[in-house]
Nucleic acid binder design. Structure first.
Lengths: 112, 112
DNA sequence: GTCTATACATAGATAACCTATATATCGGCT
DNA sequence: AGCCGATATATAGGTTATCTATGTATAGAC
């Protein structure tokens, strides 16, 4: 189980929101950006990416607009909303709390 | 979505295996131990715990034995197998790699 | 005798993610 | 002109993990 997973489940929305804090970006670009920044450790599959973007749209954490890329292709550009920025803060802080907690369990140097 | 989740999905098996490196323990005790070590951040629900233990048994990463607790109750004690110890190492290393990768994405100090 | 904490277990729902597939077009190469 | 790889979006269907809710049972405290 969990053989070389592409992502840590539950972190995709956070990663997308974070990526959009730099600049509006289209879906394909978001996936590339995450892959590049993570040094190829994290891969966002298309079947995960687009449903995730729909979720974020529904929550009003991002908004979308069709535009042309600088390589002359039509693409849907996503922009972080104010609510999305706030949400990102919440997700990051919850994530960090979880990671710290997991760290405490993992580092538990035995002894009763 | 992800409203105060009890756990980071995908990390439960790892947490259980780690808990068992100290000593054999019964399910209820494992859940308590994780809660305590994590300082109440991580809560293992029973509906997650027992299915997880079944998975680990099937994979032969733990073995189980009915015994009496020191409080005179019948309980199923789980012991880490050699394969389970190996598996824990893999899970921890993959987890740490993921966390490091997510950290790189989250800490990305903007600039194109 | 009742209540709380301990202890195990499963059914069913929900949600996230992946695989596979489909469509379409730009630009480079031949 | 035709082909191909990279870019770009989208959805259907399956798998799996986790949570909620429920059920059983008993030890010990009051």
């Amino acid at each position: 189980m969990a053989n070389r997973p592409d992502l840590l489940p539950g972190t995709l929305d956070m990663l997308i929101l974070k990526t959009l804090t730099r600049a509006p970006l289209h879906g394909y670009g978001i996936a590339q950006s995450i892959k590049r920044l993570s040094e190829d450790v994290l891969t966002v599959e298309e079947g995960s990416l687009y449903p995730a973007l729909q979720r974020l749209l529904l929550q009003n954490w991002v908004k979308a607009e069709w535009k042309m890329t600088d390589t002359n292709r039509r693409a849907r550009f996503y922009t972080l909303t104010a609510a999305g920025r706030k949400r990102l803060g919440i997700e990051v802080s919850e994530f960090e709390q979880m990671i710290a907690a997991i760290g405490r369990v993992l580092s538990d140097a035995q002894e009763a």
